[in-house]
């Protein structure tokens, strides 16, 4: 088995794993009861899913031009996903769309604790 085949197989594994994680992230967004919980699903498995898909693509494509673009997509995914989740979570919190029954402790509402 030559190196190209090995890389292709590794790439295939990464692509499938990334796709599965993205699927689970989607299920999480659908099933979680609250905006803030959903943002957990929209950040962690989603980001790792995209990163795995990118790794899979990089292993399959293997040309410098594509690798540069893939690197950029990965960097911006890492940098923007938490910011987007924070903006949505913050907006939801401030407009009172957070289900307080699901919160055990809320030090943001009650800083004196």
């Amino acid at each position: 088995m030559n190196t190209g085949t090995v890389l292709d197989w590794l790439g295939a594994v990464a692509l499938v794993a990334g796709a599965l994680l993205s699927l689970v992230a989607g299920i999480g967004v659908l099933r979680f009861p609250d905006v803030l919980d959903r943002m957990h699903a929209a950040t962690k498995p989603q980001v790792l899913g995209v990163l795995l898909l990118l790794v899979g693509l990089a292993l399959r494509l293997r040309t410098p031009t594509d690798l540069g673009m893939i690197l950029l997509v990965g960097v911006f995914q890492l940098a923007t996903a938490p910011v987007a989740a924070q903006m949505i979570g913050r907006a939801a919190y401030r407009s009172g769309r957070v289900d307080r029954d699901l919160l055990d402790v809320d030090e943001l509402a009650d800083p004196g604790r």
Partner: peptide, 15 residues
């Protein structure tokens, strides 16, 4: 704040 949203269990809401 950025990294917190990507490690287990935590998500940044307000700074």
């Amino acid at each position: 704040a950025e990294l917190l949203s990507l490690v287990p269990g935590t998500l940044i809401v307000q700074v």
